[in-house]
Simulated assay, not measured.
Amino acid sequence: MSAFSHLLLDGVSRRFGGQDALTDLDLTIGTGEFIALLGPSGCGKSTALNCLAGLLPLTRGSIWQDERRIDTLPPERRGFGMVFQSYALFPHLTVRANIAFGLRMRRLPKEEIRRRTAEAVRLVRLEDHVDKLPGQLSGGQQQRVAIARAVVFEPSLVLMDEPLSNLDAKLRLEMRTEIRRLHQSLGLTTVYVTHDQEEALSLADRLVVLREGRVQQIGSPRELHTRPANWHVADFMGYRNLWRGRVQRRDGSRATVESSGQRLHGEAVGDSADGADVVVAVRPEDIRVDGAGGTTNALSATIEVVEYQGRELAAEARTDTGQSLHLRTEQRIAPGDQVKLAIDPRRLLVYPAGGTADIDRRADASAATR
């Protein structure tokens, strides 16, 4: 495996027909890191991966592997492994032949090809399937072949473009574990594209969240889960409750906000002075069904919809002031129940408003169903 200390993306940008698909991506990747590029469809994550792979030329910026500039090199000279969403296996070749294909193209000695192929087959646990064709394999097995083919020539970097999106839920969980196991056991450096925040949180050492071609936040799974940089990141990271409000008082990081007739206390993230329009963000699991009503951020609400999710129930409720909210609880609740809710002020985040049309559309859709 070609060793390097770091990979640098310096102002990487890409335009399509005058439209910015990716703008000024700055990122340093250390050897052995697992990086997830995360965001909704059209955010620029696959564009970034294709620029890194050499499948798309840069409009602006550069890519460096240590002191060597590589964005000017064709894909085959970068030495990266690639795992595609569609697997891209040769249907007429066996599992063994698919995995060995890249080694043969590099004209390695036959004994070296045999040894590396056998090791890759063992790593992805396909020893019993080496003589089968791709059409005789399950989706998960085909994905294992694609991963083995990507790592068999010991690349300096492995690029994965939504490799699990075509699998069912059970297989996705299994393959997540396999990908992380291979990353750790082989000492890979991996860049992984996904729109699934749970997948990214479970796999990556660091996440890069993109929106409309621009980086919104780079950080560890814990940082993005507990402290999104803005409400757009919070929205994507599972903060389903996003409410418009106005700051009544700001005291350091503490903010008191009026939202839909309710006074709420929370943690301010970013600049939002007294009187400023803001967005309040709360995770469903951070709303507590509290029979005593609580003394801080106490809300009275009516349960409207309940979904059984095993140990927990997911519910949609509506406050007495008409605010719709989502919550998760282990308590037994049913539609029509009148409940008292409480939110820990440390779990309620207050962000500067900006680009809130999405929130308004969501509120309009919720009102239309009432």
Rank of each mutant, 00 (worst) to 15 (best):
A298D: 12
G30Y: 12
S220R: 08
E304P: 00
R361E: 14
V152L: 06
G187Y: 12
F90C: 08
T28N: 13
Q19F: 15
P352E: 01
L186K: 01
R211Y: 09
R361C: 00
L164Q: 07
W243Y: 10
V193P: 01
E258P: 04
T47P: 02
L9R: 09
E33Q: 13
T47F: 06
A118P: 05
R149E: 08
V269G: 08
C51Y: 14
L58H: 06
I343L: 03
H92L: 14
Q331E: 08
R347N: 14
M160R: 00
L123Y: 08
P221V: 09
F84Q: 01
Q141W: 09
P57D: 08
P228A: 04
I63M: 14
V209E: 06
L133I: 11
R361D: 10
D358K: 06
E174H: 03
P221Y: 07
G294N: 07
L108M: 13
Y192F: 15
S138Q: 05
D360N: 05
R116L: 10
R347C: 12
P284Q: 06
R96A: 11
L201Q: 11
A301G: 13
S366Q: 15
K132V: 13
S2N: 12
R125H: 14
Q184L: 15
D337E: 08
P134Q: 13
V158K: 05
I63W: 03
R246L: 02
G102P: 02
R370Y: 04
D251E: 14
L167E: 06
Q217F: 10
L159A: 03
L341V: 09
V339H: 07
C43T: 11
L25M: 13
R106S: 02
A363C: 05
V83E: 01
I333Q: 09
L7R: 07
R180A: 15
N230E: 11
R222P: 07
T189I: 07
L103G: 03
E119S: 04
T59W: 10
Q323W: 00
L137S: 03
D364I: 12
H195S: 03
L203E: 07
P91S: 12
A3Q: 11
D24H: 06
R244V: 07
N98W: 09
L73W: 02
P221N: 07
E312W: 14
E199Q: 04
V208K: 12
F236G: 01
R106A: 13
S260F: 08
H6Q: 10
G245M: 02
V130A: 12
G54T: 04
L182I: 15
G79P: 01
D66H: 13
K340S: 14
W243R: 00
D128I: 11
R249I: 05
A334T: 14
V158M: 04
R172Y: 14
A281V: 06
R149W: 11
L123H: 00
G135S: 09
S2K: 12
R370G: 15
A150L: 07
A146C: 05
G252H: 10
Q136D: 15
E112W: 01
S13L: 08
D364P: 05
H183I: 15
Q323L: 15
V215Y: 00
D360Y: 05
A21T: 08
S259F: 01
D274P: 07
V83N: 02
P345K: 07
L167M: 06
R96C: 00
L325E: 00
R77L: 07
E162P: 05
R246V: 13
A53N: 03
R370M: 11
